[in-house]
Design a protein around this nucleic acid. Sequence first.
RNA 1: GCCCGCGUGGUGGAAUUGGUAGACACAGGGGACUUAAAAUCCCUAGGCAAAGCGCCGUGCCGGUUCGAGUCCGGCCGCGGGCACCA
Length: 853
Amino acid sequence: MTRYDPSVIEPKWQAAWDADGTFAVERDSSRPKYYVLEMFPYPSGRIHIGHIRNYTMGDVIARYKMATGHNVLHPMGWDAFGMPAENAAMERGGHPSDWTYGNIADMRAQMKPIGLSIDWSREFATCDPEYYGQQQALFLDFLEKGLVYRKAAIVNWDPVDMTVLANEQVIDGKGWRSGAEVERRELTQWFFKISDFAEDLLTSLDALDDWPAKVRLMQENWIGRSRGIEIPFQRTDGAEPITCYSTRPDTLRGASFLAISPEHPVSRELAKDNPELADFISETRKMDTTEAAMELAEKKGIDTGLRVRHPVWPEQELPVWVGNFVLMDYGTGAVFGCPAHDQRDLDFARKYDLPIVSAFHMPGDESEIQDTALVPAKSETVVYTDHFAGLTETTGQAGIDATIDWIEAKNLGAGQVRYRLRDWGLSRQRYWGCPIPVVHCSTCGIVPEKKENLPVRLPYDEGGTPIDFSVPGNPLDRHPTWRNVPCPKCGQPALRETDTMDTFVDSSWYFARFTAPKATTPTSLPDVGYWMNVDQYIGGIEHAILHLLYSRFFARAMYLTGHLPNDSVEPFSALFTQGMVTHEIYLTRDSEGRPVYHFPEEVTDGRLEDGTEVEIIPSAKMSKSKKNVVDPARIIAEFGADTARWFVLSDSPPDRDVEWTASGAEAAFKHLGRVWNLCDRIGAMDPDGREEHPGEDTALLRAMHTCIHDVTMGIESFGFNAAIAKLYGFTANISKSKAGHAAQREAIMTLAQLMAPMTPHLAEDIWAHQGGKGLVINAPWPTADETMMKSDNVTLPIQVNGKRRSEVTVSKEASNADIEALVLQDDAVQRALQGGAPKKLIVVPGRIVNVVV
RNA sequence: GCCCGCGUGGUGGAAUUGGUAGACACAGGGGACUUAAAAUCCCUAGGCAAAGCGCCGUGCCGGUUCGAGUCCGGCCGCGGGCACCA
C-alpha cells in the first residue's frame, strides 16, 4: 500500500501531457472546435488564489470538452500595460518593462504547477511590441474608416504635479501624491465611435442567450436607449434659442426653469462678463469627474438672468439657471426643470424658491406637491392638469409618445432617440501603454504613421540613460529624440503623438489574437474564422459593462475593417461570471488604536504566536494591505495542485464568492487520499473472486450511471460544487459496496474519468493503476445509461395542506388513481380527514401528493 | 444618487427551476482502533418541545397558489459597477 503523494504524481503527469502534446492545438476541420478563455491576468507579480479558481473553472470546461471530442483552444496571456508598473518605477526606480516581464516570468512559473490544459505556445503579453504593433495597425484601419476621432474632453488635472490623474488617483477631490486640489481640465483626446453602434450593441444582446441575464440587463441600462424630445426654448433677448432634451415631455406643463451645464456654450459666453457666474463655473470645475461624485454632490445653481419662453404657453417666462448637476455629455447639455414630477428638480426649486407647477395628478387626488415629487410608475394612470396635447387621462409611455407626436405636429420640437452610451475616450497621458501611431505636423495636420514603420515602440531610455519615472508627468512628452520625428507625409520636422491607449483597448481584441498569435497582420482570417467566437468566456462580474462592451464594439469595428469574418461579430458566445475568493481578516491594534493586520498563517485559534488575541473581521476580498491572502504556492507545496483545484471548486457555486479556509483545504486533501486508497484496495482485489454478488453489482452500476449523469449536468451548467458533492457520494458508494472486482474496477475507472477535469493528475494515476489504455485525458467521456439509473419503485411525499405528513412508495408505473387510493389509506391522511373526504387531491406524478382538507 | 446582484443551520452551501428545506462538506458531540497520541473508520446533528404526537423555521412585512427558499409588491442589510483601477 502506497500513500497519496501529489509531489510525485503531479510532475509525472504534467510531463506526460507535454510529451503527448495534448494541449498544443491546430486548426482541424474534422473535429468540432471549442474555444474556452478566462479573462487574462494583470501581471501584478504573484498568482492569487482567485486566479487558481478562475483558471481551474476554465480548465474543467476545457478538459471536459476534450473528452467529448472537441478540438479545444485554451490559451493564456498577460494584460501587461497599466498604471501599477509605472507606479512601481516611480517608487522603486527601474523600468516598467523590466518590472512587468519579471512579474510575468514569476507568475508563469507559479501557474505551471497547477496543471492547466493551456497551449503555452500561444502566450503573449500586450506589452510585446509584436502585439501592440498590430494594435496600432488596427487603430490606423479604424482611423481610416472613421471609427476614431478627436474632440475635447475633461480630465482630472493635478496642478502641482502637472499631470493627468486617473479617477482612482483622486482621493476626496485631491491628488493622491501631491495632495493638491484636483481641477477639471479640457484636453483634446482620441475617441472611438462606439456610440454609432449603440442600437446594434443593444439589440444584439437578445441573441446572447448564454450570457447571464443580469449582465445583459446591465449593458442594456448602460447603453440606455430612450425616446424623448428635443425642444427649443426661445430666449426673450432674441438670441439663439436654448434646446433642451427630455425623456419626460409629458411633464412640460410643469416646466418652471431651465438648467444648463456649466460647460454649455451659453454658460461660457455669459461668464465672460459675469464674474459671479465665472466663479460659480470654476467652482464646479473642482468637482471629481466621476458620475457618482456628481450625483452625490450638493445640487447648486446660479441664475443667469436670462429668460426663455415656454414653448407651449409663450406668455410664460422661465428663468435660465446654470446647474452643477447638468451633464454636457448627455442630451443637449440643457434640461427643463419640472419640480412637481422630479425629486432633484423639487429639491432645487425649494432651495432657490422656484415655482412648482403640476402637469398631472393621480386620479382622485389633486393635493399639492409637498415634500416628495409625484413620479408615477410607467404603468400607472395619471390625470393631466392641462389639456394642451389633447390628453386627459393616460399611462406613462403612452402619454410621453402622445406628447411627442403633438409637439412634432405643432412644429415645436422633434422626437429623438438618444443613448446614454458615450464615445470611448482612449487617450491616456501615460508612458506604459500602446503608443497612438500618429504624428502632428504643422503643415499636414494629423498624419497616420506608415504601417511599415509599425510598431511605434516605446523608448526604453533617453539617449543611453534610463527614462526617469520619478518626475511626474508623461516621460514621452519630454523625451528628447522619441518625440521629434519627420512627418510621414511631407518629411518636415513634426511631433509624435505622446498619448498612449487605454489598457481596455489591449483587452478588447486579445481573444482574436490568440487564434494566430504570430500572424504578421492583426488576425489571420482562416484562423480567426475557425476558432472564433470564444465558446465560453469566464471572468469577474466587475467587467460586466466596460470590458465586455468594448470587446463587443471591437468585434464590430474589426469586422468593418476586414479583420474578422462576419460570423465573429459577437466575441463571446457564452459568458460566465465567477465570484471572488475571500478570507477572514485578522488584526490587532497599536498603541494609538490603529489596526495592525496579520497574515492567516500567523494566527492559530484566534491568537498570535505570543498569545495575543486577534480581532476577526468577516471574510472580504483578499487584498495585500489587509494581509488576508493565501499564497497558492504554499498550498500547492503542502497539498498539491489537485487539492487546491478540488477545494476551489467545492462548496461554493462558482458565481458566488468562496471563503478560503485552511480546514477546507485539508478536507479536500483527505478526500483525495481516500480516493487513492480506494483505488489501491480495488487493485489488490482478487479478479477471479467467485462469490455471487449480482444485486451489489447492479446497485453500484446504478449509482455509477446516476453519477455520470449528475456530474455531466453539473459541469455543463457550471454547477461544479454540486458535481463534486455527487462525486463524494459516489466515492462513498464504491467504498461501501460489496460488488465484485469487475464492477468495482469499472466504477473506480469511471470515477477517475469524472474527476479528471477537476483533479487531472490523480485521475491519470488511478487510470494507469487500473490498467486503463493511454491517458485518461484522451479517453472519451462516459455516457449515462438512463435505463440503468432508474429503480422500479418511487417514493412520493404526502402533504396535507402543503405540509409533509407522510410518504408512500409506489411502482413507477402506478396510475394516479392507484396512488390516490393508497394515499387515502395512509394513517396520517386519515387522521387529518377525520372520516371526511378531501376537498382536493393533487397528484404530481413522480413528485408529490398534496391532500387538501 | 443611479444601474445590477445577493441574503437558507455554528460555517460553506444543496434543493431536478413552483413540489420532502438543510444534500454534500467544514467545525462540534459521541464511539471504535491504539499503552497513548496522530492517522483512519463508524454514529450523531436546524430550533423549541419531547416516550412516537406536535409547533416554529430560507433577512423583515404583506400578497398570489393546493403548495413559495423559488413568483409578485414594499422595506432592511451586504456586495459589484458608475465611463482614466484592472
